[in-house]
């Protein structure tokens, strides 16, 4: 099954403030693509546009599943999830007063994911032993790192064709960031995921990325065909590596 997502000339913003100025990018089947940018450059807005939380003012966003094209612009977030695009949102957005298990099961609400629920649950509990131990604990009572793991596991419960991850490192201690990133890499290998990750922590992001984009003030300033090329680019060296 070949899935890809394409963003073409997207303009978007909030009220009168334009955040994205003609952004184009694409994620191909089986790739892990990183969207690099510091705060306020439009990473999250682009993620929100893909998910239908923010509607683009111009341009197109579409998902291709085995050559069939689904336009995402104009659809509501719940419809986009039903098509197989799942976001691990910034700030995780768990349901704090539901248990870990209830959060996971809700992740499988998507019609196509329901038949996989037993297999997915087993996979998630095996991949995240900490969640297996705490199935009955309230999600809100867990530490930040554990919550991030739960947010990722919950997204996997939906059997996503494309997984979007918005800033998994925010609010986590460096050691936990490493663990979360390592976990995403492990999952990607085990499940053949197609991933688009927004991140500002370059050193962590390149550990798992196949290639990436650098977004500055709402424009894609550089497209790196490989992590090597990204690391060599002057923008990255200046802003993310401090060289």
């Amino acid at each position: 099954m070949a899935n890809r997502i394409v963003v073409r000339d997207v303009e978007a913003g909030y009220g009168g403030v334009r955040v994205l100025h003609g952004v184009s990018m694409h994620v191909e089947d089986g790739e892990t693509v990183v969207l690099l940018g510091t705060n306020g450059n439009g990473k999250s807005t682009l993620m929100k546009c893909i998910m239908g939380i923010v509607q683009p003012d111009a341009g197109e966003i579409f998902l291709e599943v085995d050559g069939r094209r689904f336009d995402l612009a104009g659809r509501r977030p719940e419809e986009i999830v039903q098509l197989g695009v799942t976001l691990v949102p910034e700030g995780r957005r768990l349901l704090p007063r539901l248990t870990v298990r209830e959060n996971l099961l809700l992740g499988a609400y998507r019609a196509e994911a329901r038949r996989d629920i037993a297999r997915n649950l087993e996979f998630c509990l095996e991949a995240f032993p900490v969640l297996a131990e705490r199935q009955k604990q309230l999600a809100g009572s867990m530490s930040g790192g554990e919550q991030q793991m739960l947010a990722i596991a919950r997204a996997l419960m939906s059997t996503p064709r494309i997984l979007l991850v918005d800033e998994p490192s925010v609010g986590l201690a460096p050691i936990l960031v490493s663990r979360v990133i390592a976990k995403i890499r492990e999952l990607k290998e085990k499940r053949d995921l197609t991933v688009l990750m927004a991140e500002q922590n370059f050193n962590q992001a390149v550990k798992i990325a196949d290639r990436g984009y650098v977004i500055v003030h709402g424009r894609i300033e550089f497209e790196g065909e490989s992590t090597q090329k990204l690391a060599e680019h002057e923008l990255v060296r200046k802003y993310y590596l401090g060289l």
């Binding site: 998910m51 939380i53 509501r76 977030p77 719940e78 999830v81 039903q82 799942t86 976001l87 949102p89 957005r93 768990l94 349901l95 704090p96 007063r97 539901l98 209830e102 099961l105 809700l106 992740g107 499988a108 609400y109 998507r110 019609a111 329901r114 919950r154 939906s158």
Partner: peptide, 21 residues
């Protein structure tokens, strides 16, 4: 599924939408 979604709906409705609900 409906039941669990009902329990969660007042906590964070955007989170629910991001699960396809």
């Amino acid at each position: 599924f409906y039941g669990r979604a009902i329990k969660g709906v007042a906590q964070d409705s955007l989170a629910l939408r991001l699960m396809g609900i």
